[in-house]
Amino acid sequence: MVREYTHDAAMRACPETIYRALFASLLGRRNARLRTGRTRRKKQRRGVLTLNKIKNMTLIHQRPSEINDRKTPGHWGDLIIGRGPGSAIGTLVERTTRYVHLIRLPHGWKAPQVRNALITQTAHIPPQLRKTLTWDQGRELTLHEGIEALTGFRIYFGDPHSPWQRGTNENMNGLLRQYFPKGTDLPVHTASDPRDVARQLNHRPRIVLGDRTPTEVMRECLAGPLTG
């Protein structure tokens, strides 16, 4: 709408307006309109503070300013998806290229398993692309200092109940739900399944990348000079 009605501000609608119309059934049946099939709006918990249980955290507000402009590759975000013990997949999305790398967690997602998985499953990423990793304040990253020491990532934590601070990963996880629906027994997926899903997503053209794919943009970054 912004592109088609450049000079007509009345022909624009913010996301909040669109969602309110959807959940009020002003745009037809809700479950037919929403990709998630959700018919009720999830409760928002913005501003609800919880006690910090992770020691020596560095918060998202202390990240270098270069991360926000998305010009320098090597900065990744997270989210854990899945339900129940032993049912999770970690997602790393590079902010500049939107390149996704899925972390298998077949043995659970407690702190030791997540630490070991991140160390072993990110070892192939070139050192110049292992700059920062932003996570929520889940207990699975209690051993973040050990991860930093063995991977080279500098880890930052988002504020409690603030998923919008990691919008890139929120969007990516919406796409991942098409492959791994909520309630799915994620451990049943073979080692190749997450790789196949990541490959499909990384070869999917993105409007935000000028209709290029994350793989194409990542290749351009690796072929050119990288700062840092």
Rank of each mutant, 00 (worst) to 15 (best):
I147L: 12
L26D: 10
N68L: 10
N31W: 13
F23C: 00
L129F: 11
T134G: 06
P106H: 11
P127K: 13
F180T: 03
G183R: 02
E4Y: 13
L92P: 03
R104T: 09
L79F: 12
V197R: 02
T91F: 04
H189D: 04
A10D: 15
E140L: 05
A13Q: 08
L133H: 04
P127A: 13
K110P: 08
M1F: 13
D193G: 03
R38N: 13
H124T: 06
G77C: 08
L34I: 09
I89Q: 05
I54Q: 02
Q121H: 07
R154M: 07
L129D: 10
M11T: 09
M57C: 07
L176A: 04
R154S: 13
T97Y: 08
T151W: 07
I67F: 10
Q62K: 15
N56T: 01
H161M: 02
N116S: 15
G228A: 08
Q113W: 08
R63P: 03
T213D: 01
I67C: 06
E145T: 13
N31P: 04
V188H: 12
Q178G: 08
R20N: 02
E220Q: 15
R40N: 10
R45G: 00
G74F: 09
L51T: 11
M1Y: 12
H61S: 15
F157E: 00
L176P: 05
P205T: 03
I207Y: 03
N31Q: 13
M11L: 15
A13R: 04
Q165K: 03
W109M: 11
N56E: 10
D159L: 02
L27Y: 07
M57P: 02
N169Y: 01
L26N: 08
A223E: 14
S87C: 14
